[in-house]
Structures are given as C-alpha cells and as structure tokens.
Amino acid sequence: MVQRLLQPGEIEALDHTAIPRLLLPAPTTLFQARAARLRQLAAGDVPGIPVEDALRGYLTLMACVADAQHAIVAKLGGTGVPLPPHEALKTAHDHNMPPLPATGARPAVWLGVFASLLDALGNAKDAPPQLSMALHSLRTTPAAELEGIADAILGDFADGADPLRAPFVAAALQVTWSLMASQLDKAWAQPLVTGTLCPVCGSHPVASVVRIGGQSQGYRYLHCATCESEWHMVRVKCSCCEGNGKIAYQGLVGRDADPVEENKAAAKDGKTLSKANDPTKVARAETCDDCHTYRKIFNQEHDFHVEPMADDLASMLLDVLVSEAGYARASGNPLLWLKDPA
C-alpha cells in the first residue's frame, strides 16, 4: 500500500493534541531575543552557563550582529525573501526532500541581505573597536569569494570558511533562510529519511532544546543552524547517529550555580528538589558512546530565556571539557569558526 503524502492545508485536519513535529521560525522576534540573550551571557548573568572573560567581547560582537539581523528583518518585512516557485516546492515534497534546500542555488537576494547587514553593523553602538576594520575588509570582499564562503558554510566544510568573515556571511544566510521558512506551509516539509537533518532546509542542527509551553511542553527539539526551524526528536535518541543505547549527559556547573533557595530548603527536609530553576541543568552535553559524538542540549524548564544559538556559543567551556573526554562535536555553530590548529 502506498501512503499518500499530505498536501498543504490538509494538516489542519489532523489531531491538534499531537506533539508539534515542526516549529517554524519567527524572525521578527527571534534575532531580537538572541541579541538580548547574548548580552545577558556576556554580562555573566546566566548561572547555568559560566562564561570565560576572553569570550565576553565576542558574545557582545555577536549581539551586535543579531541586532543587525533584526534590523534587516524589520526593513524587509515578512515576505522580503520570496519562497521558491510552487513547482519546486511540490517536487521537493513529492520526493521527501527539504523544500528550502541549503545546498544548491541560493536566492540572489542574499548578497543584498549581506550588504544591509554590514550597513546596520556600521551603526552598532556597543561594538568592539575592531569591528570597523573588519567591516572594511568585508565590504571589499568580491562577490565570488562571498559565494565560496557561503558554499562552505551551507555545506558544512570548515576548510572553505574564513574564520574572520564566515560568521557575518552565516548571519546573512540565517536571515535569508529564516524569512523563507517563516512563510512556509508546514505540510511542505515532510520528515526526511534521517531525523538528524532539518526537514525544512536539510542543514545540521546547532544544538537541541527542551521547550516549555503549550503542546511543546517538555519535548526536545533540534534547532537548525541555517533556517532556525526546530523539529522534534525524542530525548533518548542520539541526534547524530540516532542510536539510543549509550546516551549520557555531561553537565557544567559554575561557581555560583546552585539550586534556588527553596530547593536547598527542600533538600534539608528530605524532600525531592523541584524540577525548575536548577542551573546545573540549563546546559548539558548529550554524549553517545556508539558514535562518540556529542551535541549540547539546553533546557527551557530551568531557564526560560534559553536560546540555542547564543547558549551554544557561550558554553565553549563545555565543548573543551567534553572534547577532552574523547567525544567529537557533531556539528558546529555558524557564528564561530575556529582555525584548525594543524
């Protein structure tokens, strides 16, 4: 028997009490919230994610980038980057492919988004002084070179991504794809053969997040590094190899990261700690002893303002410790590209 795929609009007839499998991005608020979270992290105001002093300046710079992304979205509007033609969406749907593939031909408008990003950054008020020099270099980069960096970012090839320019190119690509994804009918995005790639654009996730509120309460979602969509994956399954036999969680505890006072009092009385507001569970690494990789998981149940892209960027100490334990990172953060020490 051949199973018929749902057409756009038919999903409305499904059971609305089921787990939301796909959460499309809301770029009009997403980047603004990210900027606020990055500044909160840079100020050391997140007990569950201790930030080294050397990283604070970079987090502030990325907050300026997120501000610029928000400004571009406000300028372009919700339909500023048009969706592909209907036939292209239908072909992808019929073959269970991502409807907005990150690889292949890119919307030509992305270069205009990149130029607007640089203009917006030129007006940043709290940016580090080195930014002006970086902006000059970025403005004089030939379009063909920018396209090559974009190819490396979207194809996840670190060798072709210049660490100094790649985060800014990635930021422009995020605006481009998130604006498209926000207009998409969810029914166009069929589950892929693998649950480890974004069903909207086919990119790797940057991290996973346990959401709260409504039908998403308590469920884990993978957050796409490119289009900012999120898709559901059960917690006991590795988000890299999809194995479920050897999953473990490694935590990171800051100097001041203790449970809230009421939890301490409960513990003294021999009662069970309340599950909310435990800083030790805000950021953890989900490790797999089958594929020896890890990916971070952030828990909104313990910090309402969790933001996967920002929190992943700020928790580099966790990367260092888990890597020293012998695990390889499953996929990177497009806002940070490190040079190969070799």
Rank of each mutant, 00 (worst) to 15 (best):
L6R: 06
Q7Y: 05
E10Q: 04
E12T: 00
A13N: 00
L22I: 00
A26F: 05
F31N: 07
L38I: 02
A43F: 04
G44Y: 06
A63K: 04
V65Q: 05
D67R: 04
V73L: 02
T79R: 04
K90H: 02
H95F: 00
P98Y: 02
G112E: 15
D119H: 09
A120P: 08
N123P: 04
D126I: 10
P129C: 12
G148V: 01
A152Y: 11
D156R: 13
A161L: 14
D162W: 09
D162I: 08
P163H: 03
P167C: 09
F168R: 00
V169H: 00
M180H: 03
A181H: 10
S182Y: 10
L184T: 02
D185E: 02
T194A: 15
C198A: 07
C201S: 06
C201Q: 06
S208Q: 01
G213K: 01
G214E: 06
Y221C: 11
Y221K: 11
R235H: 03
R235C: 08
R235S: 10
R235P: 02
C241P: 09
E242I: 00
A248C: 06
R255H: 10
R255I: 01
D258C: 03
K264H: 08
A265I: 12
N277Q: 09
N277C: 09
D290V: 00
C291K: 06
H292W: 02
E301T: 09
P308S: 08
M309Q: 07
L313S: 06
S315C: 10
M316I: 14
M316E: 11
D319P: 08
L321E: 08
V322K: 12
G326I: 01
G326W: 00
S331L: 11
K339A: 13
